[in-house]
Amino acid sequence: MNQSYDTSKKIRHLLAGIFTLSLGASLIWLILEATGMPLTPDLGYVMNSVGDTGSINVVTAILMDYRGFDTLGEASVIFTSVAVTAAILAEPVFTLERPILSIITRRAIAYLVPVFFMFPLYVITHGHLSPGGGFQGGVSLAVLVILTHVVFGHNLAMKKIPFSLLTMGEYWAALSFGILGLLGIFTGVGFLANLATGVPRGIPGQLLSGGLIPVLNLIVGIKVAAGLSSLYITLEGNPRRKK
């Protein structure tokens, strides 16, 4: 009986393999067909982005300005998934302490944390000048929170970075993203408008340039950092015992 079960399992895996390989083959064919099309006209993002948005990083210009509405959408996806995770798993409590690392590691990390802090800060604030932006920097900031938990143990980390601070940071950042978008509506240009609302462009290539793009990067950075670190804390937390 066991043998027949194994055989049926093998056949099932073989069928699944053939099915997925044929899916993959048809995908390759479709992509080659699509890229084989005669070259389509350039939309002019590279040509115009500095003049249009003041940001010399074209990807950031698309993310935060031309297609800023998508960015609001994806920020809402992260917002909602944090809320769903919090609704599925109850609010985290740390009844069991994880083994904290040795004193050498803790001392070393304590001195290194400010240095580590510089990288996400740079990535967020220079999002319109160099590769990076709110999302990438926010993720690195969230990693710092996780590092604090791993090195110093949950109880100390929760005392230094309270869960409510993260939650509130996320809510306020999300709200200010939406309200900043409304600025464009009030000036009659369109939702999430940037330079057209009359904010100064600055000199492209300098830190203070790109109109609202650095502000949006900062907001998204705070939001993603708060969201992802509260995701980690919610997943890591011990189940609350119901007595």
Binding site: E74, I78, S81, V82, L231, L235
Partner: peptide, 11 residues
């Protein structure tokens, strides 16, 4: 955008 959405799903 797709990476961030995928991260939300995975969480």
């Amino acid at each position: 955008t797709a990476i961030v959405i995928g991260a939300g799903f995975l969480a």
